[in-house]
Structure formats: C-alpha cells, structure tokens
Design a protein around this nucleic acid. Structure first.
Lengths: 156, 156
DNA sequence: TCGCAAGTGAAAATCGATTTCAACAAGGAT
DNA sequence: ATCCTTGTTGAAATCGATTTTCACTTGCGA
C-alpha cells in the first residue's frame, strides 16, 4: 500500500548529514572549506527540490562572495557521496534533493503551481521489478513522475 | 496484466499519419512544403526514438540540402499536432517517437547498449490513477522509465 | 501570373552545464 | 607560528543542445 509522505518531509538532523559529509571528505582527502560548509549547510537546512541558482541564492544570503561554480561543484560532491539526488522535472533545470538512504520515493508534480509532493508506493515498485524481470532486464534505477493539477489549483 | 509490445512496434500506416498532418496544416493555414513532406515521411517511416540529428541524417539521405532548423521546426510541429512525442532518456538529447492515440506506453532502457523497449502495463497505470486521486490530484500525464541491463548485455 | 505571407537554412544567440586557470587557503610538515 | 604543497575557489571561457534571427525563397490564393 502507498504510504503518505509529507509535502515537506520530516526534518533531517542537519548535523548527521554534515557528519556524513565530513567523514566522506576525510576519507577521500578532500578539504573542509568555508564554502563547502556554507553550501551544504543551507542545502541540508532548506528541505525541498532546489536548482543550482536557488542554492546559490540561499548561500549568497549568508556570504555574497560564493561563486556559482563552487555551488555547482559542492552539489556534485553531495551527489557523489550519496547525500543528494539529482532530478529533472519536466523543465530543463536540474534540481537537487536530500537523499534518504532508508526509503525510495517518487514525485507528483503540480503543473500549475509547480508544487512537488513525494510519494512511496511499494506495490508499484514491486510491479516494476516484475516487469523488468519479464523482459530479462536487471533493474538498476527508475524515474517515475506523475504530472497533474493539485487540489489547491483545481479549486481556482 | 502487462502486455508485451515489440521492440519495433507494429507498423503504422504512414499514409494515415501523413493525412492527419495534412489536415492539421490545412486547419491551421500552414503550408505543405517539400521539406515538411520529406521530414515527416522519413520520421513516420522509420519507427523508433530519434534525435533531431538522426532525423536530419535520414532526411539528408534523400535531400542533402535540408537544414537542421527545418527538421527542428518540423518535429516541433509534429509534437504540436499530436503526431509525435518528445522524450529525454537519461542523456541530454531530446528524442522523438510517433505518438499513438490508442495506447499509452512507457520505456525500459538498457544503460549499456541504450536499447529502448516499450511496455504497457494497465495495472501500474491504474495504480498511478489511484495514487494521484489519493492526493487529490487530477492526473494529466506521467513519465515512467525503468533503467537496467538488458539480457544481451548481461551475458557479455 | 503576381504578390505576399509563410517557410527555409546558415549562422548567431541563448541556455544550462561543465571546465579552465590564476589566485587563494587548508592543513600537514618544519 | 610559518612554510609549502596541493586542493579549492570564482570569474570567465567553453561546450553541447536548443532556439531564434534574418535575408532569401516558395507555396498558394487572388
């Protein structure tokens, strides 16, 4: 059965994510710079699905000197260490979301107001597996996005 | 239950598609040019998922003078009149496929050889509807792509 | 056939993602 | 604490794909 997940998912312990990042950087011999700390902090704190530009804006609110390339590279770093996922919804911009190791989720997107709701449905997941197997494929990943009009926009 | 669809789907009557296109252009006051006839013909004849460059190559085989922009605009025209769908699989290039009004299908993509298999699964479709409804969304469209390794590539 | 609005194609512009490179700074060695 | 090596930063350049521009061409109705 599908399990309802909040629009704004349960808060993550920013500290835990930061610790994981720090451990990863240490393991890889990467340096803990003020920019990386700033960018990861604003991204971990502001839960949602953000583009590079949006993360840049959040970071610049605290330090106007950070550059686009730094945010770009830091987000790639977060993806590389498994703390963020890269997504493209309909439009062309790439968005990032905090990765949760425990559960996989997909997205329901309002084509009017662009609101993004996350959902998890074990039955659909199981059927995907069955389907891939039927074609002899070893399933590695998937992209499942539902586009529609949300309740708030329907009533307008 | 899922229904198996051929890798290369059943042949379309190119004439029917052409007729639909002609009717659309007439309705909209658009002109039937030799380029539009050429591009739509090669696209309708060669079933599959093609990028602009691939359609351009097919068109140039018959008339080396056609330009990229013309193919680009013609493909957009086909999308506008509902005869083609625009898709992006993993990579950055946009691909086009013939739109079939009767049935909806999704894609199973081999991450090794890039082979694209189409599938149709009524159960998953129904579950998507149920899920959208549960969130109060009116479902408009969806994107469902499964990425994995196909049988041929598994054995290599 | 004529006139002109729509269409074509080469090239330029745009757009987002990615890389370059000189200046900078983290952090281990001294 | 200072030095030195090497990874990091940020502005700008580049890249690859898409989209637009504009002078020229062509379909097609009068």
């Amino acid at each position: 059965m599908a399990q309802v997940i909040q629009d704004q998912p349960a808060e993550h312990a920013v500290g835990d994510l930061t610790d994981e990042l720090t451990a990863y950087m240490e393991r890889k011999g990467l340096r803990s710079t003020s920019q990386r700390r700033l960018v990861s902090e604003v991204f971990f704190s502001a839960e949602g699905h953000y583009s590079i530009d949006e993360v840049l804006a959040m970071a610049r609110a605290k330090d106007p000197k950070v550059g686009y390339a730094t945010v770009y590279r830091t987000m790639k770093l977060l993806v590389a260490c498994g703390l963020a996922n890269e997504r493209q919804f309909g439009d062309t911009v790439t968005r990032f979301e905090i990765a949760r190791h425990d559960s996989h989720h997909d997205h329901l997107i309002c084509i009017e107001c662009k609101r993004i709701v996350e959902f998890e449905d074990d039955e659909i997941e199981a059927q995907q597996e069955a389907l891939a197997k039927r074609y002899g494929f070893r399933l590695v990943s998937h992209k499942h996005e539902l586009y529609g009009v949300c309740p708030a926009c329907r009533d307008k």
